[in-house]
Design a binder for these strands. Structure first.
Length: 103
DNA sequence: TGAATGACAAATT
DNA sequence: TAATTTGCCATTC
């Protein structure tokens, strides 16, 4: 487990590397993880993420720059992004050209 | 072991 | 141009 090079572990590390005040897309994370077509699995990992995780999962959004979370979770992420100085629309949409991390 | 699921993305109509 | 459908790949049941 310590040196687990599974996809889940990689996504975990990549998301943890997202700088404050910046966001990234699932596809980008998937590509950095080594599977450009595994964007869904990135979301799948975050979906299984425990509530007490230190991961800034709220900095991960879809290609359209919107939050894909349903219901209350979406509101939670929107609040978390706003707390980092990121302006989010009522629909949970963010300006990718402005906040997207360029690595 | 096999089939189903899913916090996306790209291609097509 | 916008909306809809299909494909993908790792994890879960």
């Amino acid at each position: 487990m310590l040196e687990d090079d599974s996809f889940q572990q990689r996504v975990y590390q990549i998301v943890a590397a997202i700088p404050y005040g910046h966001v990234t897309t699932y596809g980008e994370i998937a590509r950095l993880a080594g599977s450009p077509r595994a964007a869904r699995q990135v979301g799948g990992v975050l979906r299984r993420l425990p509530a007490g995780s230190k991961l800034p999962w709220h900095r991960v959004i879809n290609r359209k720059g919107s939050i894909s979370l349903p219901g209350d979770n979406l509101k939670r992420q929107r609040d978390a992004l706003a707390a980092e100085g990121i302006e989010v629309s009522d629909e949970g949409r963010v300006s990718l050209s402005r906040y997207r991390c360029q690595w």
